[in-house]
Design a protein around this nucleic acid. Structure first.
Ligand SMILES: [Zn+2]
Ligand SMILES: [Zn+2]
Ligand SMILES: [Zn+2]
Ligand SMILES: [Zn+2]
Lengths: 146, 146
DNA sequence: TCTTGAACCTATAGTTGCTAGAGACATTAG
DNA sequence: CTAATGTCTCTAGCAACTATAGGTTCAAGA
């Protein structure tokens, strides 16, 4: 049996994150020691590793919740799981495409700047004049800040 | 003079977002009508367009704040502005690289699945077994959920 | 056995960049 | 003049954690 700290170390997940996952029902409430401390077994370790890996691949927690409940029914068709994964792939590709457009514009404006004063700075100028841009203009698709 | 709704329309920014930018000090408090409604002029419009464009390019609001205060000092060197832009470019490239690794793994696992039952599903299997992955293992670099 | 220090507990608030709602006031078109 | 739309403030919510405060439990050394 592992304490929460050991579990976190084993799975590469921070302790508060594990408690958070329990709170939102992604991990079941574990057994407790006589002194009320959480104790985890192999099952919890596997489940947490699954969550961790899915998060690394960018799956939202809600999708992971669905994947976990699917993985508890091994005899059913995996069509639902595959379609969640395909949606994640599509989202990933869309983000790559968008980021490439942003990369190109950033490169262009940095490359064109003569590095003089602010009043001549191509970076500032391009940001202020949005007219000839080709990239996405829907704020709902805006990148999360770096 | 524009009301907040007209300004939002003109700049492609939602009304609550404009009020939010004012609240965090990114836009100065505008004049008000006799009935206490916000009225904006050309300056505010330009400033908001600048913010909007920078956000589309993924700059964090804090970076935009710095860029705006730089653009208020036109005689200074643009080195600081350029370095903010270069940092944004670097962050964008890092995200593209990471997303490409994720894309590859998602493609691989989807492509290898025979689409039978969950117990044979390659998607579920790969998520559960994290051992032979090459992608980033630092949760601090994890992708924001799609 | 006692003590110290690390790890653990709960609960709450903060992060980023907005978005949505409630309930009240202002403006404008017909 | 009235009805509809727009605006006001304030509060709370989203994802997915992270951090802090104030307290308890556990393991190891003296
Ligand atoms: Zn420059
Ligand atoms: Zn642009
Ligand atoms: Zn499958
Ligand atoms: Zn992997």
């Amino acid at each position: 049996m592992l304490t929460i700290g050991k579990l976190g170390e084993a799975a590469g997940v921070k302790v508060p994150t594990i408690r958070y996952y329990e709170q939102i029902g992604l991990l079941p409430p574990p057994d407790r020691s006589a002194g009320n401390q959480r104790l985890y077994g192999q099952r919890a370790r596997d489940r947490l590793a699954f969550i961790r890996h899915a998060r690394e691949l960018g799956f939202p927690l809600e999708a992971i919740r669905d994947l976990l409940s699917l993985s508890d029914r091994p005899d059913q068709s995996c069509a639902a799981a595959d379609s969640i994964a395909r949606a994640q792939l599509a989202a990933t590709r869309a983000r790559i495409a968008r980021l490439r457009a942003l990369e190109a514009e950033l490169e262009r404006m940095i490359g064109q700047c003569a590095h003089g004063t602010i009043s001549d700075c191509r970076v500032i100028e391009v940001l202020g004049d949005h007219a000839q841009c080709r990239h996405d203009h829907d704020p709902a698709v805006a990148e999360p800040a770096a």
